[in-house]
Design a protein around this nucleic acid. Structure first.
Lengths: 106, 106
DNA sequence: AATTTAAGCAACCGAATAATTGCATATATT
DNA sequence: AATATATGCAATTATTCGGTTGCTTAAATT
């Protein structure tokens, strides 16, 4: 079973969950209330997020608070870093200009 | 058929393709030579990457050069931007310190 | 002690995915 | 013109994925 950060953030529901718990830790039930899907569906997503360490658990009695692991999110950023120059450089802008010139020729 | 950037970069082979053509545009055959998978498999990945606009085509005779679209990569970066403060802030460092203290208590 | 509530686990199902194989099309090369 | 090469498209298959349903465990509430 492949379980890496990229596969984890591929699902839109999981991205929504990540965004939701980014500001504050939440229990599975509380998270599920924000979605149309059932608690079990959310729970499954949480398991996947936990397995790839994007999310940490903090038990408090019978409640389990899920919290985002910022360090792991960094990994995606690290991968992206390789390409940052592609859109930050002016090559990108130059490309846009060239495209515009092509269009105007028509 | 869901076809967004996040789903596109979920596959490790596609990430490898992206990295490969980041520096210079390449034909499907040339790309396929860098992998164990067949040309058709690579071609399929290229189709997915093209559909979500992560990759642009440039035809030259019967050859088609595939080139990375930096602007689209930016989208992932944009999403990530929401969380950047999570690992750039010192909350993250503080968390590490607290974790270390917990361990030392044992 | 009995009931309610929070959460995880396992089996199952339909849809999507990745890869293979075979075929079609168009451009070079001879 | 015939052949070789580059690429795309379609059908098929095994695997994975997302979700539902039902059950179990454990902690809180009554």
């Amino acid at each position: 079973m492949r379980r890496d950060v990229f596969q984890a953030i591929a699902d839109p529901t999981r991205r929504a969950i990540i965004l939701l718990i980014a500001s504050q830790a939440m229990t599975p039930n509380a998270i599920a209330e924000h979605f149309d899907s059932t608690r079990q569906a959310v729970s499954k997503h949480l398991r996947i997020l936990t397995e790839c360490q994007l999310v940490k658990q903090e038990q408090s009695g019978r409640e389990i608070y899920y919290q985002l692991n910022g360090t792991k999110m960094k990994e995606v950023d690290k991968w992206l870093e390789q390409f940052r120059k592609l859109w930050e450089s002016r090559f990108d802008e130059l490309d846009k200009v060239l495209q515009a010139m092509k269009k105007n020729k028509k």
